[in-house]
Nucleic acid binder design. Structure first.
Lengths: 354, 354
DNA sequence: ATTTTATTTGGAATCGATTCCAATTTTATA
DNA sequence: TATAAAATTGGAATCGATTCCAAATAAAAT
């Protein structure tokens, strides 16, 4: 590895002061064309790039061009979409993203994560911790502390006691519409699978689902909600119990899944049990993950516009970090869209905006 | 946002020198218990965390505890697995990962990406650019330049002219075994879909496939290879052409897909064309992506151990950055494993290590 | 040609940590 | 108790950039 070259080395070779080299690098106007050319030649010769650490330390900028993205797990397709879009948008604006994956287990303190963010003095943080992490008792305090050091935008429903920008979806209404959709297709016995009812975000989904059930006078078949009930496995288990422990008259004709992932597991189990989708059981997912169009049959689902929200979040953070009138914290609600495919029996590719 | 607090503020309030505060922070032994306690109390009071930028600048450490991860796209499940595992391993070692997603289009220069890495003076870089990016003419020079500034490990087959550590799989042998597997199940007419034959990494896969075809005296049905032939769409198109433009006797009875993603599209199209898997056509994928176990039927595929390689890469980088005898560049080959599921007609869940 | 003004340049201070060295205090030994 | 040795502490230099201020040079005006 070559010994690192600094602005002083460039200055020495060009026989000018370091300040002049800096002016060339920052495109400061007060440099004569002749000097600029001479210095630039040496910079090019060595492919010199100024150290971001040193720049970040310097008083007037105090920016390391970095946004922290807090997500549960990259391979969780929902989080992956957010990270992907956030990073692309950040790059477009000359920023980069530092990844903060939350430990999968319970044995961690959100304050440690927050400390790591603070230690780096980032330009902003994008929090999208998901349903499970939202239940941590230390979360609000930790996020509030984080906000004392950098702007924060959360892609999540509002968290009590946290006064940052929230970009979330009206999942309650969406779920209401999803049930309505199934109702119009003739379904009268429904089941909601995956997630746990007492959880905050799932709360909105469940609320919308139950409200629609009540308003339309439908039957809700209670179903088992596993521990970490957001995985394909929980979908498999739910279906297994739903169709093996009940008699014909108490089985749902349609399933509303907490997420596409849960729906995926459910469909696998339905297939094993020789129940056809949609003829025997209709199913609807949530997230519009890429694989939902490749299931057999293609899954009707709900698009949460996560990429769009990720881009909005990054823009907001970058604006704040560049000092432009820091908008007061706000909550933006976006109506998700029902993507009708074939898993509920309607053979249309059209998109209903709700 | 609170005004930032520094080591000097702590020192002033504790009525000690900044150097003493620093010694407390770095757990230097030469501090009396009394002073340490007094200073620590103030540090705790303000939740003070020293700035990483300042620490990184400092001569003796010169480390910002960051590994750069270069991948084509987070939502590509293969890359996502690598990023996820790399980040988890990095965190375990006290490091964090900075994301470098390659632009999806062709209009970029790898040197720009490399400059961004260099600018940050990272502790190491993990390159896993994939097949398409490997074809860029400027890649070897750019990676070599990068190596002058930080250790580099590539999760890819060796790239001509680049002298870094390579962690790759023996895809040629694996593909040979995959064809053998299909042969033993009675298949005699095969087709390889997805990817483009002239590409470097796909080269290994194609080589193994063709060698097995020849050795076993099988028939290779030539198939269309699309432009960006690594997507589900390319699988759909390939299947469409394969089964609509040929007569019965020239149709494959088994398909070897470049990746699970390609297989996913292929299965969708086969379903549309009312061809049953595995009764009418057998299919085998590659990557063991999580959804491959949820297709109908579950997809037989090849596990490339990407997580394991990502962890190895990060360990290697961290070791190098901590100055421990920088290992000479080496190439590690790992044999992938065939995961037999149901898409080729064998109803076993066992794992054959090759 | 000379003064005034504008442009260009160099030198020093700064950002927030760490570490070396010297000064000081404490403890151990004679 | 005096002296040597060890432990603790403060002050200054350093890392690699940027920017302010003053000095030097060039251009414009008288």
């Amino acid at each position: 590895m070559a010994e690192k070259i600094t602005i002083y080395d460039i200055a020495a070779e060009a026989k000018v002061a370091p300040s002049t080299v800096s002016r060339v690098l920052t495109h400061h106007p007060n440099v004569s064309a002749k000097t600029r050319e001479k210095v630039q030649a040496i910079i090019n010769k060595y492919h010199f790039t100024p150290s971001l650490s040193a720049q970040a330390l310097e008083q007037s900028r105090q920016s390391n061009k970095t946004i922290g993205v807090i997500i549960p797990e990259v391979t969780d397709h929902y989080s992956g979409k957010i990270l992907c879009a956030a990073d692309r948008e950040a790059r477009r604006l000359g920023y980069q993203t530092l990844l903060f994956q939350l430990p999968g287990n319970e044995n961690y303190d959100m304050n440690d994560i927050v400390n790591q963010l603070i230690r780096r003095r980032l330009n902003g943080a994008l929090y999208s911790g998901g349903v499970l992490e939202a239940m941590r008792p230390e979360l609000p305090a930790a996020l509030n502390r984080l906000m004392e050091y950098m702007p924060l935008v959360a892609i999540s429903p509002p968290i009590a006691g946290v006064n940052c920008t929230f970009l979330h979806n009206d999942l309650e209404t969406t779920m209401y519409h999803a049930v309505q959709h199934l109702y119009m297709l003739g379904h009268r016995r429904l089941a909601f699978i995956g997630g746990a009812r007492d959880m905050r975000e799932s709360g909105a989904r469940t609320r919308g689902y139950l409200r629609a059930i009540q308003d339309l006078g439908l039957m809700d078949i209670p179903s088992f909600h596993g521990e970490g009930g957001f995985t394909p496995e929980s979908g498999e288990i739910a279906v297994l119990r739903l169709f093996s422990e009940t008699d014909e008259a108490h089985r749902p004709t349609a399933i509303v899944a907490f997420s596409d992932l849960v729906a995926l597991g459910a469909m696998k189990q339905l297939n094993i049990m020789r129940l056809r989708v949609p003829q025997d059981v209709a199913i609807i997912g949530c997230d519009n993950t890429f694989f939902s169009q490749y299931t057999t049959p293609p899954l009707t689902t709900i698009d949460l516009y996560s990429e769009e929200r990720a881009r909005t979040a990054v823009n907001e953070l970058v604006n704040c970090s560049q000092g432009s009138t820091p908008k007061p914290p706000f909550t933006l609600v976006r109506a998700p869209a029902l993507i009708v495919r074939e898993s509920c029996g309607v053979m249309l590719g059209r998109r209903e905006n709700l």
